[in-house]
Design a protein around this nucleic acid. Structure first.
Length: 559
DNA sequence: CGACTTTGACCAGCGC
DNA sequence: GCGCTGGTCAAAGTCG
């Protein structure tokens, strides 16, 4: 779990960065380095320990006044800061001995440093010291209490201790939350890695590096024995759109799609009868996974780089808009289907649902969408069957994209497990009610306008282009996020970078997931081209754009 | 004329 | 068993 530990490393500087400044302000400048050195090695509770090292704790029955002379104003070496006794009394007793058993009562800087160095070896992730950053007044009282009565000092110090203790508790709680978050991230990574390993192993395929022309993200998998048989025993690299995981193996007809009644059995019932894949995937493929993309668009259909042929249209229950059925025509016998339907509640929203696996090479523009949908489907199937309704996946995605604004909805409800990438959501809103049993997962999207759908191809292409950068943990420098505050931007980029690093060891998974994440994050990037027909992926006169669902809308009630 | 869309018919699954 | 619904087929129509 080297990757997960990498995440923990990121936390360490956070815990340290809060500590020093205002503490240092309490002391003459010539002691800064000395103090800095000591407070860099806190053990929990940080406050107590830090203050203890600043002012050596007393014996149980003795008031500690032996400050380093360099801490005191000239000519005041013998001055005793009365208020300090109560300030340290409660906890200094507990800190008379350091964690390693070494007496922390020191009379020289050298001894103090030595002790600090030793305690520093047992450093924990702890952000407790940040509470000192706001409490300069107490520091002032420690140094500038000339002529103030001891009673006043005691009162003041007591109140400060109380405040500090409250803050300490709060910081401890936050520290605990951070630790739990780290644990959760680690768990999510483990789960995904195990799923990926299981998939690769059981499919019997080898995930290899694709040819350089197509980029690192392309996955080529050797065909299974039965497929080899169909292809004359040759090993044919196959670039696939893995929506249903096993569907590519089961749905490919032996004849062309024009061969009617070929019975390649796309119905879910057929899938139930013929599970031809590993045991782990049996449950998953009892249902056929689907990936649905919701996008607000006036455009008739998402241009995703593939060729589609409309083969049917029906009125669906509960929606006045007809549902159009398309199949991929980029290769004969390609089993990929998609459904296009406008949202009943808001007809500016276009819902495109993909199903099946391409059995042919795809153009780069199509690969972008394929990578996105396949990664979504893979996460859906890899997790939804082993955790309740994709909760693991939602946790994972939430962890990946904490400041996202729109939603991905995972639904494992019958008959098909479906993950919906919602590119229509405004920040912190849930525009439409969702059926129970669905899990909403935040996704970043900044294109709630009609251009969202039209820009999708470009977004996905851009995503592919960004993948190498993404994997190289440089995405935050390359992506533009004008809609985000600087802090949010950094948080998002850092989080995504960390997550990417965590999965970088799995090339195939990295490619797919990185495409999904970067594509959506990159949706805020301005694109030189406008509209939805600018991807140049319409090699024939008939493609997806040739079909106009808006015309279909005019045919409401035809069926 | 070929490719594609339209659209009524057909089939299967599911609930009552 | 029947009706409803989703999904698909294929003949007819349309278009370039």
């Amino acid at each position: 779990m080297a990757k997960a530990s990498g995440l923990s490393i990121d936390l360490d500087p956070i815990s340290f960065s809060f500590h020093t400044p205002t503490v240092l302000n309490s002391f003459p400048q010539d002691t800064t380095s000395d103090i800095n050195h000591r407070i860099m090695f806190p053990t929990t509770p940080c406050l107590t320990n830090t203050l203890a090292t600043m002012s050596p704790p007393p014996p149980v029955d003795q008031f500690p006044v032996k400050l380093n002379p360099s801490f005191l104003p000239p000519g005041d070496n013998k001055r005793r800061v009365v208020g300090e006794r109560d300030f340290f009394a409660e906890k200094s007793d507990r800190k008379l001995v350091d964690d390693d058993g070494v007496d922390s009562m020191h009379t020289s800087d050298a001894d103090i440093k030595g002790s600090a160095d030793r305690t520093g070896l047992e450093l924990n992730v702890d952000i407790g010291l940040n509470l000192l950053t706001t409490n300069t007044s107490s520091d002032q009282s420690m140094v500038d209490n000339n002529g103030i009565s001891s009673g006043m000092e005691d009162k003041k110090a007591n109140s400060e201790v109380a405040v500090l203790q409250v803050k300490l508790e709060r910081v401890k709680a936050e520290n605990q939350r951070l630790k739990e978050m780290l644990i959760q991230v680690t768990k999510n990574y483990n789960a995904i890695k195990m799923h990926m390993g299981s998939l690769v192993q059981h499919r019997g395929g080898k995930v290899e590096k694709a040819d350089e022309d197509q980029g690192e993200d392309r996955m080529i998998v050797e065909e299974k024995p039965e497929q080899k048989k169909q292809n004359g025993g040759q090993i044919v690299p196959k670039q696939f759109m893995d929506l249903g995981l096993a569907a590519a193996d089961t749905d490919e007809p032996s004849s062309s799609s024009s061969d009617s009644k070929s019975h390649h059995e796309d119905s879910p019932g057929a899938d139930n009868k013929v599970p031809r894949f590993n045991v782990d995937q049996t449950e998953a493929t009892m249902k056929k996974a689907r990936v649905s993309v919701r996008a607000r668009s006036e455009a008739p259909m998402i241009t995703d780089g593939c060729q589609w042929r409309k083969y049917g249209q029906k009125m669906a229950k509960g929606n006045p808009c007809p549902r159009a059925y398309y199949r991929c025509t980029m290769a004969t016998g390609c089993p990929v289907r998609k459904q296009v339907q406008r949202c009943a509640e808001d007809r500016t929203i276009l819902i495109t649902t993909y199903e099946g696996n391409h059995n042919h090479p795809l153009p780069p523009a199509a690969m972008a969408m394929v990578s996105t949908t396949s990664s979504a489907a893979r996460m859906l199937l890899s997790g939804s069957m082993s955790s309740a309704d994709g909760l693991m996946n939602s946790n994972f995605l939430t962890t990946l994209l904490p400041c996202s604004s729109s939603m991905a909805t995972i639904s494992a409800s019958a008959p098909f497990p479906t993950i919906t990438l919602d590119l229509t959501q405004a920040p912190n809103s849930s525009q439409f009610p969702r059926p129970p049993g669905q899990v909403q997962v935040p996704f970043p999207s900044n294109s709630p306008t009609a251009s969202a759908t039209a820009l999708l191809p470009q977004i996905f292409v851009q995503a592919l282009n960004n993948q190498s950068k993404f994997s190289g943990l440089q995405m935050s420098q390359d992506l533009e996020q004008p809609q985000l505050q600087q802090g949010q931007e950094n948080t998002l980029a850092d989080t995504v970078n960390a997550a990417t690093a965590a999965i970088a060891a799995d090339p195939s998974f990295t490619a797919a997931l990185a495409a999904a994440i970067t594509s959506i994050i990159g949706s805020s990037q301005p694109h030189p081209s406008n509209g939805h027909n600018s991807n140049g992926m319409n090699p024939t006169k008939s493609n997806g754009n040739a079909t106009n669902p808006s015309n279909s809308d005019d045919n409401v009630g035809q069926r």
